[in-house]
Protein backbone atom coordinates (compact mmCIF):
# COMPACT_ATOMS: atom_id res chain seq x y z
CA UNK A 1 0.00 0.00 0.00
CA UNK A 2 1.35 3.41 -0.90
CA UNK A 3 1.97 5.61 2.13
CA UNK A 4 0.45 9.10 1.74
CA UNK A 5 3.22 11.67 1.63
CA UNK A 6 2.00 14.42 3.90
CA UNK A 7 5.52 15.24 5.08
CA UNK A 8 7.63 17.67 3.13
CA UNK A 9 11.08 16.05 3.17
CA UNK A 10 12.34 12.77 1.78
CA UNK A 11 14.59 12.36 4.85
CA UNK A 12 11.45 12.33 7.04
CA UNK A 13 9.65 9.62 5.09
CA UNK A 14 12.58 7.29 4.41
CA UNK A 15 12.75 5.49 7.72
CA UNK A 16 9.17 5.83 8.96
CA UNK A 17 8.02 5.46 12.54
CA UNK A 18 10.79 3.77 14.53
CA UNK A 19 8.34 2.21 17.02
CA UNK A 20 6.43 0.42 14.24
CA UNK A 21 9.27 -1.39 12.55
CA UNK A 22 8.61 -5.11 12.07
CA UNK A 23 11.13 -7.71 13.27
CA UNK A 24 14.00 -8.44 10.92
CA UNK A 25 12.91 -10.97 8.28
CA UNK A 26 15.82 -13.12 7.14
CA UNK A 27 13.69 -16.12 6.25
CA UNK A 28 11.87 -14.92 3.13
CA UNK A 29 14.86 -14.51 0.82
CA UNK A 30 15.42 -18.23 0.25
CA UNK A 31 11.75 -18.79 -0.66
CA UNK A 32 11.73 -15.87 -3.09
CA UNK A 33 14.89 -17.12 -4.73
CA UNK A 34 13.34 -20.58 -5.12
CA UNK A 35 10.18 -19.04 -6.59
CA UNK A 36 12.21 -17.09 -9.15
CA UNK A 37 14.32 -20.14 -9.96
CA UNK A 38 11.19 -22.22 -10.62
CA UNK A 39 9.70 -19.61 -12.96
CA UNK A 40 13.01 -19.07 -14.76
CA UNK A 41 13.44 -22.79 -15.27
CA UNK A 42 9.99 -22.95 -16.88
CA UNK A 43 10.74 -19.99 -19.13
CA UNK A 44 14.42 -20.46 -19.94
CA UNK A 45 14.74 -24.22 -19.71
CA UNK A 46 17.73 -26.24 -18.54
CA UNK A 47 20.05 -25.31 -21.42
CA UNK A 48 22.84 -22.91 -20.50
CA UNK A 49 22.65 -19.70 -22.54
CA UNK A 50 25.78 -18.18 -24.07
CA UNK A 51 25.05 -14.88 -22.35
CA UNK A 52 22.67 -14.40 -19.45
CA UNK A 53 19.38 -12.61 -19.90
CA UNK A 54 19.90 -9.32 -18.09
CA UNK A 55 17.05 -7.75 -16.19
CA UNK A 56 17.32 -4.28 -14.69
CA UNK A 57 14.97 -1.73 -13.18
CA UNK A 58 14.83 -0.03 -16.60
CA UNK A 59 13.01 -3.11 -17.93
CA UNK A 60 10.50 -2.80 -15.15
CA UNK A 61 10.00 0.92 -15.70
CA UNK A 62 9.70 0.60 -19.47
CA UNK A 63 6.82 -1.83 -19.29
CA UNK A 64 4.37 0.78 -18.01
CA UNK A 65 3.67 4.48 -18.30
CA UNK A 66 6.79 5.59 -16.44
CA UNK A 67 9.03 6.00 -19.48
CA UNK A 68 11.50 8.86 -19.58
CA UNK A 69 10.27 11.85 -21.48
CA UNK A 70 12.13 13.63 -24.23
CA UNK A 71 15.09 12.82 -26.40
CA UNK A 72 16.85 9.58 -25.38
CA UNK A 73 20.42 10.81 -25.05
CA UNK A 74 19.44 14.04 -23.35
CA UNK A 75 17.17 12.34 -20.84
CA UNK A 76 19.79 9.67 -20.12
CA UNK A 77 22.43 12.37 -19.63
CA UNK A 78 20.05 14.32 -17.41
CA UNK A 79 19.50 11.19 -15.32
CA UNK A 80 23.25 10.68 -14.92
CA UNK A 81 23.83 14.31 -13.96
CA UNK A 82 20.96 14.40 -11.47
CA UNK A 83 22.15 11.13 -9.96
CA UNK A 84 25.66 12.60 -9.54
CA UNK A 85 24.27 15.76 -7.93
CA UNK A 86 22.23 13.59 -5.60
CA UNK A 87 25.37 11.72 -4.54
CA UNK A 88 27.12 15.00 -3.80
CA UNK A 89 24.17 16.25 -1.76
CA UNK A 90 23.97 13.07 0.30
CA UNK A 91 27.73 13.33 0.94
CA UNK A 92 26.97 16.87 2.20
CA UNK A 93 29.18 18.45 -0.44
CA UNK A 94 28.55 22.09 -1.29
CA UNK A 95 27.24 22.35 -4.86
CA UNK A 96 28.22 25.62 -6.47
CA UNK A 97 26.82 25.08 -9.96
CA UNK A 98 24.82 21.86 -10.31
CA UNK A 99 25.51 21.29 -14.01
CA UNK A 100 29.21 22.16 -13.99
CA UNK A 101 29.92 20.39 -10.70
CA UNK A 102 28.13 17.23 -11.77
CA UNK A 103 29.84 17.13 -15.18
CA UNK A 104 33.23 17.71 -13.51
CA UNK A 105 32.59 14.88 -11.06
CA UNK A 106 31.35 12.63 -13.88
CA UNK A 107 34.49 13.38 -15.91
CA UNK A 108 36.66 12.58 -12.89
CA UNK A 109 34.86 9.29 -12.43
CA UNK A 110 34.50 8.06 -16.02
CA UNK A 111 36.45 10.26 -18.39
CA UNK A 112 35.88 7.99 -21.40
CA UNK A 113 32.13 7.59 -21.01
CA UNK A 114 30.59 8.05 -24.50
CA UNK A 115 27.51 9.66 -22.94
CA UNK A 116 29.71 12.26 -21.23
CA UNK A 117 31.40 12.88 -24.56
CA UNK A 118 27.97 13.42 -26.13
CA UNK A 119 27.09 15.93 -23.38
CA UNK A 120 30.33 17.83 -23.89
CA UNK A 121 29.63 18.06 -27.63
CA UNK A 122 26.00 19.15 -27.52
CA UNK A 123 25.14 22.14 -29.66
CA UNK A 124 24.66 25.38 -27.66
CA UNK A 125 20.85 25.15 -27.75
CA UNK A 126 20.73 21.60 -26.46
CA UNK A 127 23.41 22.34 -23.88
CA UNK A 128 21.46 25.33 -22.57
CA UNK A 129 18.29 23.24 -22.45
CA UNK A 130 20.05 20.48 -20.50
CA UNK A 131 21.63 22.99 -18.12
CA UNK A 132 18.27 24.63 -17.39
CA UNK A 133 16.66 21.23 -16.97
CA UNK A 134 19.35 20.11 -14.53
CA UNK A 135 19.03 23.34 -12.57
CA UNK A 136 15.28 22.75 -12.18
CA UNK A 137 15.80 19.15 -11.01
CA UNK A 138 18.50 20.31 -8.59
CA UNK A 139 16.14 22.87 -7.03
CA UNK A 140 13.50 20.18 -6.52
CA UNK A 141 16.08 17.78 -5.03
CA UNK A 142 17.39 20.45 -2.72
CA UNK A 143 13.96 21.40 -1.43
CA UNK A 144 12.74 17.81 -1.06
CA UNK A 145 15.75 15.89 0.20
CA UNK A 146 16.52 17.23 3.68
CA UNK A 147 19.69 16.17 5.50
CA UNK A 148 20.52 12.48 5.61
CA UNK A 149 22.51 12.03 8.86
CA UNK A 150 25.74 10.06 8.67
CA UNK A 151 24.47 7.85 11.52
CA UNK A 152 21.91 6.41 9.09
CA UNK A 153 24.82 4.86 7.18
CA UNK A 154 23.84 6.30 3.79
CA UNK A 155 25.43 4.79 0.70
CA UNK A 156 24.69 5.95 -2.82
CA UNK A 157 24.61 4.38 -6.30
CA UNK A 158 24.97 0.86 -4.96
CA UNK A 159 25.31 -1.80 -7.59
CA UNK A 160 23.68 -5.17 -7.11
CA UNK A 161 24.05 -8.24 -9.30
CA UNK A 162 22.30 -11.55 -8.76
CA UNK A 163 22.85 -14.55 -10.99
CA UNK A 164 19.94 -16.94 -11.19
CA UNK A 165 18.89 -20.02 -13.18
CA UNK A 166 22.44 -21.37 -13.17
CA UNK A 167 23.73 -18.19 -14.77
CA UNK A 168 20.97 -17.95 -17.42
CA UNK A 169 19.51 -14.79 -15.90
CA UNK A 170 21.10 -11.89 -14.14
CA UNK A 171 19.23 -9.33 -12.07
CA UNK A 172 21.08 -6.02 -12.07
CA UNK A 173 20.24 -2.96 -10.11
CA UNK A 174 21.61 0.37 -9.00
CA UNK A 175 20.09 1.68 -5.79
CA UNK A 176 20.39 5.46 -5.65
CA UNK A 177 20.37 5.59 -1.87
CA UNK A 178 20.34 2.98 0.83
CA UNK A 179 20.19 3.82 4.54
CA UNK A 180 20.12 1.66 7.65
CA UNK A 181 21.81 -1.55 8.68
CA UNK A 182 20.94 -5.21 8.26
CA UNK A 183 22.44 -5.93 11.65
CA UNK A 184 19.52 -4.52 13.62
CA UNK A 185 16.93 -6.83 15.18
CA UNK A 186 14.14 -4.95 13.39
CA UNK A 187 13.73 -4.17 9.68
CA UNK A 188 16.02 -1.22 9.26
CA UNK A 189 17.10 -0.73 5.65
CA UNK A 190 15.37 1.78 3.39
CA UNK A 191 15.93 2.09 -0.35
CA UNK A 192 15.45 5.28 -2.34
CA UNK A 193 15.09 5.58 -6.09
CA UNK A 194 15.58 9.01 -7.63
CA UNK A 195 13.89 9.41 -10.98
CA UNK A 196 13.84 12.39 -13.30
CA UNK A 197 10.42 11.29 -14.63
CA UNK A 198 7.03 11.84 -13.01
CA UNK A 199 6.04 8.87 -10.84
CA UNK A 200 3.87 6.28 -12.51
CA UNK A 201 3.17 2.55 -12.59
CA UNK A 202 6.70 1.93 -13.86
CA UNK A 203 8.20 3.70 -10.84
CA UNK A 204 6.12 1.53 -8.52
CA UNK A 205 7.38 -1.62 -10.24
CA UNK A 206 10.95 -0.31 -9.93
CA UNK A 207 10.43 0.27 -6.19
CA UNK A 208 9.32 -3.34 -5.78
CA UNK A 209 12.24 -4.52 -7.90
CA UNK A 210 14.77 -2.68 -5.71
CA UNK A 211 13.26 -4.34 -2.62
CA UNK A 212 13.40 -7.78 -4.24
CA UNK A 213 16.99 -7.53 -5.46
CA UNK A 214 18.16 -6.12 -2.13
CA UNK A 215 16.41 -8.99 -0.32
CA UNK A 216 18.13 -11.53 -2.57
CA UNK A 217 21.51 -9.85 -2.14
CA UNK A 218 21.51 -9.38 1.62
CA UNK A 219 19.13 -12.14 2.69
CA UNK A 220 17.20 -9.60 4.78
CA UNK A 221 13.90 -7.95 3.80
CA UNK A 222 14.28 -4.14 3.80
CA UNK A 223 11.96 -1.90 5.76
CA UNK A 224 10.83 0.45 3.07
CA UNK A 225 11.27 1.36 -0.59
CA UNK A 226 10.82 4.95 -1.70
CA UNK A 227 10.71 6.72 -5.06
CA UNK A 228 11.36 10.43 -5.41
CA UNK A 229 10.70 12.33 -8.60
CA UNK A 230 13.02 15.27 -9.17
CA UNK A 231 10.61 16.35 -11.94
CA UNK A 232 7.61 16.89 -9.70
CA UNK A 233 9.00 16.73 -6.15
CA UNK A 234 6.55 13.98 -5.16
CA UNK A 235 7.64 10.84 -3.40
CA UNK A 236 6.05 7.49 -2.86
CA UNK A 237 6.90 5.09 -0.08
CA UNK A 238 6.04 1.43 0.28
CA UNK A 239 6.58 -0.72 3.37
CA UNK A 240 8.17 -3.94 2.21
CA UNK A 241 6.42 -7.18 3.11
CA UNK A 242 6.22 -10.67 1.68
CA UNK A 243 3.23 -9.85 -0.55
CA UNK A 244 5.09 -6.93 -2.14
CA UNK A 245 8.12 -9.12 -2.80
CA UNK A 246 5.99 -11.84 -4.38
CA UNK A 247 4.48 -9.15 -6.62
CA UNK A 248 8.00 -8.09 -7.55
CA UNK A 249 8.77 -11.70 -8.50
CA UNK A 250 5.68 -11.59 -10.75
CA UNK A 251 6.92 -8.34 -12.37
CA UNK A 252 10.31 -9.90 -13.09
CA UNK A 253 8.77 -13.08 -14.44
CA UNK A 254 6.60 -10.97 -16.79
CA UNK A 255 9.72 -9.24 -18.12
CA UNK A 256 11.50 -12.54 -18.68
CA UNK A 257 8.39 -14.05 -20.31
CA UNK A 258 8.20 -11.12 -22.75
CA UNK A 259 11.92 -11.36 -23.47
CA UNK A 260 11.71 -15.07 -24.27
CA UNK A 261 8.75 -14.81 -26.65
CA UNK A 262 10.05 -15.29 -30.18
CA UNK A 263 8.65 -12.68 -32.57
Amino acid sequence: MLIPTTVALLADVVRGDRSRRPPRDDASAAGLRALLEDHFFELLGPQLRVTPLIISSANLRGTGSGRDLGDGTLSHARGMIVSTIFRLLVAQVHVEDPFDDAVTAWRGDRPRDPLLDAVLHLDPDQSARLRADVEAHYRVLLSGLGTIPSSWLPRTSLRVRQLLAGGNAELRDVIDLMVGSNRATVANVALVDITTSPLGAGAERAMRYHALVQTLRSGVVPLRTVAFSSATGEFWALDVDHALLVRAVGDVVDVVARATVTP
Partner: peptide, 17 residues
Amino acid sequence: HPILGLITAEAVNWATQ
Protein backbone atom coordinates in the same frame (compact mmCIF):
# COMPACT_ATOMS: atom_id res chain seq x y z
CA HIS B 1 36.01 19.83 -5.20
CA PRO B 2 33.15 18.08 -7.09
CA ILE B 3 35.49 15.13 -7.73
CA LEU B 4 36.53 15.18 -4.06
CA GLY B 5 32.80 15.02 -3.29
CA LEU B 6 32.38 11.92 -5.44
CA ILE B 7 35.49 10.37 -3.90
CA THR B 8 33.94 11.01 -0.46
CA ALA B 9 30.70 9.31 -1.56
CA GLU B 10 32.60 6.28 -2.90
CA ALA B 11 34.78 5.96 0.21
CA VAL B 12 31.71 6.21 2.47
CA ASN B 13 30.08 3.46 0.40
CA TRP B 14 33.16 1.23 0.74
CA ALA B 15 33.54 1.74 4.50
CA THR B 16 29.83 1.23 5.15
CA GLN B 17 29.63 -1.90 2.99
